Amino acid sequence: MDIGIDSFAAILPDLATGAPPSATDRMAELLDEVEVADRVGLDVFGIGEHHRAEFLDSAPAIILAAAAARTRRIRLTSAVTVLSAADPVRVFQEFATLDLISKGRAELVVGRGSFGEAFPLFGLDTRAYDDLFAGKLDLFMHLGKTSHPRWQGRFRPELIGQGVFPRPYQERLPVWSGVGGTPQSFARAGVLGLPLMVAIIGGTFERFRPLVDLYYEAGARAGHDRATLKVGVHAMGFVAETNVAAGDAFFPGWAHLTETVGRERGWAPPTRAHFDAMAGPDGAFLVGDPTTVVAKIQKASAVLGGLSRITFQMSTALQDSAAMRRAIELLGNEVAPVARSIV
């Protein structure tokens, strides 16, 4: 099992003063976090994509390229690339370039995105939300097979054999399908034979088992060997020396961002009691001391039929750089060596 971190490059205010850090300082801290993750032997670091004031990750390939120059072995991925709102040719070129810089460590998780800001920003109709993703994913997968594609679709000018360069260092760029809770997304990934990255940001792991089963069933019907189909989980997570310390470090930032987004979506205000339930034995938050977190990973893998990767969404933690670095060290030194043996 791969163990890694996903970051949305959240830029959170100081809870005492209400003032956010400078964007320059926050970006420097983020790159330091990737360096620490590489040093302690974590397998993967992902950067999300958002087009909002709370996050600095609107250009993930650039952040990952900066990280590639400062790391040696950790794999570098998007988490996720909002392919529906992008030009697949340009995305392919960006990540092929990242693959060259990193000497074969680039990956992508592609998805439709859980926020809608990218669509009006780039002049796209949200009513075509699913069709945009399906068509652009088809093109992106085609680009991996040939340097001179011939392709025709609904949302992009036809390709008639123009060269798409550079080509990646790897023979094929690894592509995961990032999904939330939509059955057709799970089925689509299975039909295409893509590894599945499931975003579980609340509730329970058990709720997603029928959807994971749907993925495997769709893959089998499409002729894919079960052994080639992989499932990963992206979950809220943070590690500290004690469960209380982990919760105290993670809750304030999580509550701030949840309340901000919740005002737009009509959610009830977040409470510490709800958070503690999510961090408890039955919840889907991987927040606690190393022993607690390993047990939660083991449960998630058992419930979902075996996992190939778990990534911790840690960037909503209170912006205490020392606590963040310590959490990464604990994840790499104490959690990952045990979790990798879980099947």
Rank of each mutant, 00 (worst) to 15 (best):
V175D: 07
L307N: 13
G280Q: 07
Y169G: 00
Y216N: 01
F208Y: 15
D289P: 12
T204I: 04
F285R: 02
R70G: 10
A23I: 01
V343R: 12
L192A: 10
A61Q: 04
T71W: 09
L286V: 11
V231N: 04
A323Y: 09
I297F: 15
P13W: 08
T77I: 04
L76Q: 02
S58G: 07
R105P: 15
L330P: 10
G161V: 01
P60I: 00
Q93R: 09
S315I: 00
E329H: 05
A19W: 09
A9R: 00
D57P: 06
S102A: 10
A284W: 07
S341I: 00
V335A: 09
F165W: 14
A53K: 14
L100S: 10
L229R: 10
L229N: 07
A317I: 00
S78G: 12
G178E: 05
V175Y: 06
G202K: 10
G18F: 12
A19P: 05
T228M: 01
L214M: 11
V343C: 08
P157D: 13
L143M: 01
A246G: 13
F55I: 00
F208Q: 05
S308F: 06
G116P: 13
A339M: 08
A65S: 15
P269M: 00
G193L: 01
G288M: 08
M1A: 11
S147D: 15
A277N: 12
I3F: 05
E49K: 04
A268I: 05
G306C: 11
T126V: 12
L196G: 12
R309V: 07
W267F: 14
W176D: 09
D125A: 03
I200H: 04
L173Y: 12
G4I: 02
P281E: 15
Q162L: 03
T126D: 14
R52A: 04
G223M: 03
D43E: 09
G116V: 01
A273D: 15
A246C: 12
V191A: 09
F95S: 03
P21L: 13
T182S: 14
A235L: 10
V293S: 11
R52Y: 06
I47A: 11
R105V: 09
E334S: 10
P195W: 12
G262K: 02
E329F: 09
E33M: 01
H50L: 02
A79E: 07
F119A: 10
T271G: 14
L12K: 05
V261C: 05
G219C: 03
I297H: 14
T24W: 08
I342R: 02
G180M: 01
D14W: 08
R226D: 13
V231W: 00
G48W: 13
M236P: 10
